[in-house]
C-alpha cells in the first residue's frame, strides 16, 4: 500500500502527503461517525440492553428463585448471572450479537458511502488528494472502530450493571473449573475483542452494498435484510452443507473462550471466516468504488 503513485506528479513527497491525508481522512471519518446523533442513539440503546437484562434478572430472582426455572432456557449464561455479575457481560453479548449489534453495524456501514453520495458530499471527499482506495480504507477502519466501541459499550455497561446488582468473584467456567476474577476479566476482554472481530464480516458486506447505491437508506436496509436472511438460513438443518460458510454461523463461538481448556476450533474458524468475508467483499467494494462514476 505504500508504493509511490506517480499520478502526474512523482517523488516521495506526494506519497507522504497522501499518507498524511489518509491518516487525517481516517481521523475525520471517525469523528464524523461518532458525532452523528444516530450513532450516539444506537450506542445508547446498546448500553440499555444489559441494564434491562440485569434488572429483569434481579427482579425475577429477588425472592431467591433461580433464573428461568433453572432448566437452562433463555439466553446463554443467564442462569449464572445471579452468582457472578461478570456473566451479565456474556449474556448481554450473547443476546445482542445475533441481531442488535450487527444491525447497528449495518446502519453505519451501509450509510458510509451511499449516505455521502445521497447527501452529495462524496465528491467533495474525493477532491482531497488521498485517493478512493484510501477513502474506502478510512471508511472501513472507522466502521471497524465503531464495532469495537459498540461491543465495548455493551460489555462495559453490562459489567457496571453486573457489579452493581450482583456479586463479583471467582468465575466458574462452563467446563466447571474455577478461575480467579482477574483471569475471568481477562477472558471477558478477549471475548469482547472476538465479538468485535466477529462483526468485521458484516462491515465489509455493508461497505460493499454501500458502494452499489446512492441511497443511504437502501444500503442500510439491504445490509440488515441480508443479515436477517442469512440468520434465518442458518436455522434450517436442511442447509447444513452451506451453513459453515455463512458469516454468523460461528458467532456464538466466543463462548468457547470460557471452556477449560479453551476450545479453539470454532473460534479460529470464525475468525478465518470473517477474514474471508473481509477479503472477498472488501475487494469487491474496492473494485466497485474505484471504477465507479461518481456523479452526485
Amino acid at each position: 500500500m505504500s508504493r509511490a503513485e506517480p499520478a502526474g506528479m512523482s517523488g516521495a513527497a506526494p506519497a507522504a502527503a497522501r499518507r498524511l491525508w489518509g491518516l487525517s481522512l481516517f481521523r475525520s471519518e471517525v469523528t464524523t461517525v461518532f458525532r452523528r446523533w444516530r450513532t450516539l442513539a444506537l450506542l445508547g440503546v446498546l448500553a440499555a440492553v444489559p441494564v434491562l437484562v440485569g434488572i429483569a434478572v434481579k427482579i425475577e430472582t429477588g425472592d431467591g428463585g433461580s433464573v428461568g426455572h433453572g432448566d437452562g432456557s433463555g439466553p446463554a449464561f443467564i442462569s449464572q448471572v445471579t452468582n457472578n455479575g461478570l456473566f451479565l457481560v456474556f449474556t448481554s453479548l450473547a443476546s445482542t450479537l445475533p441481531f442488535f449489534l450487527p444491525m447497528a453495524i449495518g446502519v453505519i456501514a451501509g450509510d458510509s458511502i451511499a449516505g455521502e453520495a445521497g447527501a452529495g458530499t462524496l465528491r467533495y471527499l474525493l477532491v482531497a488528494p488521498a485517493g478512493r482506495t484510501r477513502l474506502l480504507l478510512a471508511k472501513f477502519t472507522a466502521t471497524v472502530a465503531f464495532c469495537c466501541v459498540a461491543t465495548l459499550v455493551v460489555a462495559a455497561s453490562a459489567l457496571a450493571v453486573g457489579a452493581l446488582l450482583f456479586p463479583l468473584g471467582e468465575v466458574t467456567l462452563i467446563s466447571g473449573t474455577t478461575v480467579s476474577f482477574t483471569d475471568g476479566l481477562l477472558r471477558t476482554l478477549l471475548i469482547a475483542g472476538v465479538v468485535a472481530l466477529s462483526l468485521t464480516g458484516i462491515v465489509a458486506l455493508g461497505l460493499f452494498v454501500s458502494t452499489l447505491t446512492n441511497s443511504g437508506i437502501a444500503a442500510m436496509a439491504t445490509t440488515v435484510g441480508l443479515l436477517i436472511t442469512v440468520q434465518i438460513l442458518d436455522q434450517f438443518p436442511q442447509l447444513s452443507a452451506i451453513q459453515p460458510y455463512l458469516f454468523p454461523h460461528y458467532w456464538l463461538s466466543f463462548a468457547d473462550l470460557l471452556r477449560d481448556p479453551v476450545y479453539w476450533d470454532q473460534l479460529l474458524r470464525n475468525l478465518g471466516l470473517q477474514a474471508l468475508y473481509v477479503a472477498v467483499f472488501g475487494s469487491a467494494a474496492w473494485a466497485r468504488f474505484t471504477t465507479k462514476d461518481i456523479t452526485v
Binding site: 433461580s66 433453572g70 449464572q80 467446563s175
Partner: peptide, 23 residues
C-alpha cells in the same frame, strides 16, 4: 452451543455439571 455438560471424576467424587442450567 455456548454451554457444556461435564462429568468429572476425581478420586471418589463424581460430579456432573450442566452449565446451561447451572446445576
Amino acid at each position: 452451543r455456548a454451554a457444556e455438560y461435564s462429568v468429572i471424576r476425581n478420586g471418589d467424587d463424581v460430579w456432573a455439571y450442566d452449565s446451561a442450567g447451572n446445576t
